[in-house]
Design a protein around this nucleic acid. Structure first.
Length: 767
DNA sequence: CGGGACAAATCTCATACAGT
DNA sequence: ACTGTATGAGATTTGTCCCG
């Protein structure tokens, strides 16, 4: 609840139209932080949202209420203005309280209102004295939205119109129309206008209040002398026209001026042209005419005609806020049956799976309470590859073990054997929700135990506990809800051994496997997790709901992300071309150390190994990067002839013989290690040939192929691993051990070269 | 504000199991 | 034989409350 209040607070501050966790984007957050510097400094919730967005996580929201939507217009001001301009003028926009496009447009959506008109609207908030800032912002907004060629008419530009479209306004969008009533005092300087019926048409008549009767108003007619789109209205006294009704009106109480044209109007049809207390009409005495500034005739008339339509056809009028309808749809939901409530409707397959589930449910009802057996199983193929695929299956039998029906479901997202099993289980529960005397037979011990636990437990389950389920959180939460809300008749669960002599279960198993090649009758069932009472928000990643405990997911996610980052380093480019058996490399780096203990020796060794792996050991070239002035003329300390790069440490002429020996002995070592297992027969020459023929037997620097220098770095060539696997048929564990020992041997012997070289270097530095 | 006590969460590791 | 996942044990880390 407190979090929710804070979210509302944030929504208010950032002037958003819905829940900040819902549609706020990362780059927007950065902009908002620049605008509201103090308020958003170290804002905990905003920082959390930002973190979610940067990592591609988002939150699926359970309920319309939780979306915290401000219901009104369809198009946001934010969407029609260029981003820069929107954020630059956000403070002013917020003060004006304009969020939707229709707040700043005329009712027909074609013209832009003036600032004065907007300030006269109902949604105006307390108006701060800093009016100049708002006026400045408004000018900028006008520049964006108005059509360059028709600024005077205040037409909106084509681009803006394309975004907004045309629609009929269903209400007056906050426009205040002040009508006259019989209590009003007669006024002299303000203009009024009213609707007048003329034959079959209705026209608007402008003028001044002449006389206030009880039901009718006599209006001194003025005619318009300028264009209706102008930013002012020019009115001139009418010298008599076809509207004149002087003769029919009869004696008037107050006649202070000669009038040639008087019109009689019904009092409910008469409006004030502007607030008469603040009227700024300018009189031009010579012609007896007036100029009323800052008012656009066409806008006013548009408002009147809309209101007129609403009076004639009240059904056209609709409130913008339709929250009441949401309440109604909530009421409808409770009447659905279990299948329709919990299975999500798909848009395109006409709810095929719901139909099928209903059909099976109907068939089972026909059994009239006789014993029913449900066999369930899930299957996964190509586990651990990108071609992973999963199908769950259910078979329904009557009391004589005659097959009633079958049902197969495709498993999507986070496919795993356990998910396939749980999916089949929950579908079985949903189908038999209103049927008694059912026995569900499963081969999965976990489901059997966990379900029994749920049934037996009396303690109340809260959201936190639900989220701690090991996997498939939301499916288990649904199952728990069935039981908590008494929505299903609890069936009997039986556990059998997998691949045993149970005829029916084996048949099911075999049928499911047949479905991988024939998808015709395999359905797709998505569950409607939004029906969960206890869970309002669901964390998603790339729009896929995360079904693991969040912490564990983030851990896996980070591990993969970091590994990917490492692989994609520029210096590792070569190893994406010619592959490396990374598992052996990482095992070699681990230094056979316990996670919870460490000592100085291994730490030092590990540090060196990693430096070695990423070619960052302190060679002379490396030192030049730090201390160029001192080392600029230094060469390899061993031969004193060439520049000492990482590769050259091993390539140096003086080491040539030593390196050759190391290669020779490392091959011997490898062969010895394999021999130690005593179970493999192989030709030693084949291994030696491999080293001679392939590039990893040579000491050189190559940008494309693995060489012995890479083996020194601690990389085990995949080619060699494949050879051990396929030719010698070693087990994985043995390849692991041998590989690590081989790398250790190479490391130890080459490390000596490095140590010797460092001694020379030290002597040199002392001089 | 830091430390102590306690509870809960999390981690690693070893092992079991099902499927391929 | 290999793979991925589930599970439990034991150790460590993190969170919460209370106190001075």
């Amino acid at each position: 609840m407190i979090t929710k209040i804070r979210l509302y607070n944030l929504q208010q501050l950032l002037f958003l139209n819905d829940n900040p966790i819902y549609s706020l984007r990362e780059k927007d957050i950065i902009r908002y932080k620049k605008i509201f510097t103090t308020q958003l400094k170290n804002h905990y919730i905003l920082e959390c949202i930002k973190m979610l967005k940067t990592q591609n996580f988002s939150i699926a929201i359970n309920d319309t209420v939780d979306k915290m939507e401000i219901i009104g217009g369809n198009i946001l001001i934010k969407d029609i203005l260029p981003e820069e301009i929107y954020f630059d003028n956000l403070r002013s926009i917020k003060k004006l309280n304009i969020m939707f496009a229709d707040q700043i447009l005329t009712l027909d959506g074609k013209n832009l209102l003036t600032l004065k008109e907007i300030l006269g609207k109902r949604f105006k908030k307390f108006f701060s004295p800093n009016r100049s800032l708002i006026e400045k912002s408004w000018k900028i907004i006008e520049d964006c939205i108005l059509d360059n060629n028709e600024v005077i008419k205040r037409r909106i530009s084509i681009e803006a119109r394309n975004k907004i479209g045309t629609s009929f306004a269903h209400n007056l969008k906050g426009t205040i129309l002040t009508k006259m009533n019989s209590d009003s005092e007669p006024i002299n300087n303000g203009f009024i206008f009213g609707k007048k019926k003329l034959y079959n048409d209705i026209i608007l008549v402008y003028g001044k209040n002449y006389n206030l009767g009880s039901n009718n108003i006599v209006l001194e007619h003025y005619i318009m002398v300028n264009n209706p789109d102008d930013l002012f209205m020019g009115l001139k006294k009418c010298l008599g026209c076809f509207l004149d009704e002087t003769s029919t009106i009869g004696p008037l109480e107050r006649i202070h001026k000669q009038s040639n044209c008087l019109v009689n109007l019904r009092i409910e049809d008469v409006y004030f042209l502007e607030n008469y207390l603040h009227s700024h009409a300018i009189i031009i005495h010579e012609t007896d005419s007036y100029i009323v500034p800052d008012i656009i005739q066409s806008h006013i008339e548009s408002n009147i005609w809309h209101e007129h339509n609403f009076i004639i056809e009240p059904l056209l009028f609709k409130q913008d806020d339709i929250r009441l309808n949401i309440f109604e749809s909530n009421m409808q939901k409770s009447t659905q049956n279990c299948i329709e409530k919990y299975v999500k409707k798909e848009k395109f397959n006409k709810n095929l799976s719901i139909e099928k589930l209903n059909v099976i449910n109907y068939k089972l009802i026909q059994q009239l309470g006789e014993q029913i057996f449900v066999y369930i199983d899930g299957s996964v193929i190509n586990n651990g590859t990108e071609n992973i695929d999963g199908i769950a299956g259910l078979h329904f039998y009557d009391k004589d073990h005659k097959l009633i029906d079958e049902f197969y479901v495709n498993i999507e997202h986070w496919i795993s054997p356990s998910k396939a099993e749980v999916t089949s289980f929950i579908i079985a529960l949903i189908i038999v929700h209103n049927i008694s005397n059912v026995e569900i037979i499963t081969d999965n011990e976990f489901i059997f135990n966990y379900f029994n636990d749920i049934i037996c437990k009396t303690e109340i389950y809260n959201t936190r506990k639900l989220l701690k389920t090991h996997n498939n959180i939301y499916i288990w939460a649904l199952i728990r809800q069935f039981i908590d809300l008494n929505e299903i008749i609890i069936p009997k669960i039986t556990k059998i051994k997998a691949h045993d002599d149970d005829l029916y279960h084996n048949f099911l198993d075999q049928q499911i496997k047949g479905r991988y090649s024939d998808r015709n009758r395999v359905f797709l069932v998505n569950f409607n997790f939004f029906q969960l009472d206890k869970i309002e928000y669901m964390l998603t990643w790339n729009n896929i709901i995360i079904e693991k405990p969040i912490r564990r997911f983030i851990r896996y996610y980070n591990e993969i992300l970091n590994l990917e980052k490492f692989f994609n380093l520029r210096r590792n480019r070569k190893y994406t071309i010619d592959s490396v058996e990374w598992a052996i490399t990482f095992e070699f780096l681990k230094e056979n150390e316990n996670f919870l203990q460490t000592n100085f020796h291994t730490t030092k060794l590990l540090r060196y190994k990693i430096k070695n792996l990423i070619e960052e050991i302190l060679t002379v070239e490396q030192r030049k990067l730090i201390n160029f002035d001192i080392y600029k003329d230094w060469k390899c300390p061993v031969c004193e002839r060439k520049k000492e790069t990482f590769g050259y440490v091993w390539l140096c002429y003086s080491n040539r013989k030593r390196m050759r020996n190391i290669i020779y002995y490392s091959i011997i070592c490898l062969i010895e290690k394999i021999k130690e297992y005593d179970i493999y027969t192989f030709y030693e020459t084949k291994i030696i040939d491999l080293f001679i023929n392939e590039s990893f037997g040579e000491v050189k620097v190559d940008n494309n192929k693995l060489t012995f220098v890479d083996i020194i770095k601690g990389l085990f060539p995949k080619l060699l691993a494949d050879f051990l696997r396929q030719e010698i048929k070693m087990t994985k564990v043995h390849i692991f051990e041998t590989g690590v020992k081989f790398l250790d041997f190479v490391f130890d012997s080459t490390h000596k070269i490095w140590v010797d070289r460092c001694d020379l270097q030290k002597d040199k530095e002392k001089v």
